[in-house]
Structures are given as structure tokens and as C-alpha cells.
Computed example of a mutant assay.
Amino acid sequence: MVALVGFEALLALAGAAYEVRGLLVSRATEPGAAVALAASALLLAVALVLGARGLLAGRRGVRAPLLVWQVLQLAVGLPQFGGGTTWAGLLLSVPAALVLAGLFSRDVLPDPER
């Protein structure tokens, strides 16, 4: 599951790089929006990396933000199946569903005796 969260971080980083490339190479029509989107994607990537590190360390507090992100990612990914971009729907929905299910596994849930 940590690997999937890392994969999601890489996707967010790729989105940031795509926006920066569009800003530098193809002269974006809305440079302010491109910068804001790239910065948001970069912050998301950092947050996902911190969440993955927290999962590895067994921290309880990382589950809630990761859970919220998976739900949001599913909300974006599922409509892609009807829009003709099935590949984007798979790329967003499958990891989100797997991480969402994994967040409720016994390995992630805190042990009440600890």
C-alpha cells in the first residue's frame, strides 16, 4: 500500500512537471493558473510522500488525510470512464480504491494494546 501512495505521489509530480513544461515550452495562455496548478500538484506530491512515510512508521494520524485524498481521487477518476478517457480513469481509480481498502486493513489500523 505504501508503494501505491508513492505511485500517486509520482503521478502528482508528473502533473506538476507537465504544467511547468507547458509554461516554459508552449507559452501557457494563463501563466498564473499554470503556476498555481503546478505548485498545488507539487504540494500534493510532498503530502503524499509524507503520508507514505507515516504509514511506514506506523503513525495513526496519516490515515485520515490519505483517506480523504483517495475519496477525492476516486471522485475525479470514476467519471473518466464515461468520458472516453478510460486510461485516466484506470490510472486514478485503481490505486485509489486499493489504498482506500488497504487503509482499513489490520496492518494499518492501530493496535489498541499499544
Rank of each mutant, 00 (worst) to 15 (best):
A3Y: 06
L4E: 10
G6A: 00
A9M: 12
L10D: 10
A12R: 13
A12I: 13
L13F: 09
L13M: 02
L13K: 01
A14M: 09
G15K: 07
A16S: 04
A16Q: 06
Y18K: 11
V20C: 10
R21A: 04
L23K: 10
L23A: 07
L23E: 08
V25R: 13
V25T: 15
V25E: 10
S26Y: 13
R27Q: 11
A28Q: 14
E30L: 15
P31Y: 09
A33I: 07
A34E: 06
V35R: 10
L37M: 14
A38P: 12
A39R: 14
A41Y: 14
L43N: 14
A45N: 00
A45Y: 00
V46E: 03
V46K: 08
L50R: 02
L55F: 09
L55Q: 05
L56C: 04
R59Y: 12
R59M: 03
R59C: 00
G61Q: 08
G61K: 00
V62W: 04
A64H: 06
P65L: 05
L67E: 11
V68S: 10
W69I: 03
W69A: 06
L72G: 14
Q73D: 02
L74W: 15
A75V: 09
A75H: 08
G77I: 08
L78F: 01
L78D: 01
L78A: 13
P79E: 00
P79T: 11
Q80S: 05
G84N: 03
G84P: 04
W87L: 15
W87F: 08
G89Y: 12
G89F: 07
L92T: 10
V94N: 01
P95M: 11
A97M: 09
A97I: 07
V99C: 03
V99A: 03
A101V: 07
G102T: 11
D107K: 14
P110N: 02
D111F: 06
D111I: 09
E113M: 09
R114L: 12
